[in-house]
């Protein structure tokens, strides 16, 4: 029968304990201090979380595995400052669960993509990259024109709120309506959206068609938000802090 009791053999348990102790020191010493980081590096006042539509776009970014070819981390190196813009600060991704810093640039870094290209450029580029950038080796994403499923957004915002992202009750309750409102400028719903999220998030028909809320709306809203959640990097660069 399955002998449940077994003599906890002295030597092998000693080996197990030694391995655990040896293997835990490195992790503790490097990870623990990071959790007291906010004592020295407080979050910039103007850091805003992603709006529901941007969050839905981020989920699509993750779903399609964009991190496999694109990074979101401008390093503190001269050529990267010239090519991409101010180097990325730790506080910029404080609300990113998980962080999407990435580890490979088969495609360019996207940390400062917000506002660099027009929405129409993004629509054409996502549907067929080679129509806009002939030498691009990026796959095309024709299925992004399908309607956006916003059913999980309230629960998503609630879960993130539980993890410390500043979404209040109204934001969570109005998550689905706000996702639609952000792609419908000039509507009364859009005013409600801006009452909750302020004037900084862009409110426009990202995929060019205000009558439908598509996955393109969400993904482009997210891409346009990259690097614009706080102005701290521009201030840090201006002060000349390396």
């Amino acid at each position: 029968m399955l002998k449940l009791h077994y003599n906890l053999e002295k030597i092998s348990m000693g080996l197990v304990a030694a391995i655990i102790v040896a293997a835990s020191i490195g992790g503790l010493v490097e990870i623990a201090p990071l959790f007291t980081l906010d004592e020295t590096v407080e979050l910039p006042g103007d850091l805003r979380p992603n709006t529901p539509l941007e969050l839905a776009g981020r989920e699509i970014y993750m779903r399609e595995g964009c991190y496999a070819c694109h990074s979101q981390m401008v390093r503190s190196l001269a050529d990267e400052l010239d090519r991409y813009g101010p180097y990325s600060l730790a506080s910029e991704s404080a609300y990113d669960h998980p962080m999407l810093w990435g580890s490979k640039r088969t495609g360019p870094d996207l940390a400062r993509l917000g506002g660099k290209y027009s929405d129409d450029w993004h629509v054409a580029h996502l549907i067929d990259p080679r129509s806009v950038v002939p030498a691009s080796i990026m796959p095309s994403y024709p299925w992004l024109t399908r309607p956006l499923d916003t059913a999980l957004l309230p629960d998503a915002l609630a879960t993130l709120a539980r993890l410390g992202v500043p979404y209040d009750k109204e934001m969570i309750a109005a998550a689905e309506a706000d996702a639609l409102a952000q792609s419908r400028p000039g509507t009364e719903a859009a005013d409600g959206f801006q009452a909750r999220y302020g004037a900084r998030p862009a409110v426009q028909a990202f995929d060019g068609d205000p009558s439908r809320l598509t996955e393109l709306d969400a993904l482009i809203a997210y891409l346009q938000s990259l690097g614009t959640l706080t102005d701290a990097p521009y201030r840090a660069l201006a002060e000349g802090a390396p």
């Binding site: 490195g26 992790g27 990870i31 990071l34 730790a90 404080a94 998980p98 999980l152 998503a156």
Partner: peptide, 24 residues
């Protein structure tokens, strides 16, 4: 998990802490 009946979830770590834990 966003809901116990869906695959979608949010990692507990974020930002620079997540970067360190991820590459650790």
């Amino acid at each position: 998990p966003v809901r116990l009946t869906t695959a979608e979830s949010f990692p507990v770590w974020s930002g620079v802490q997540d970067a360190m834990v991820q590459w650790w």
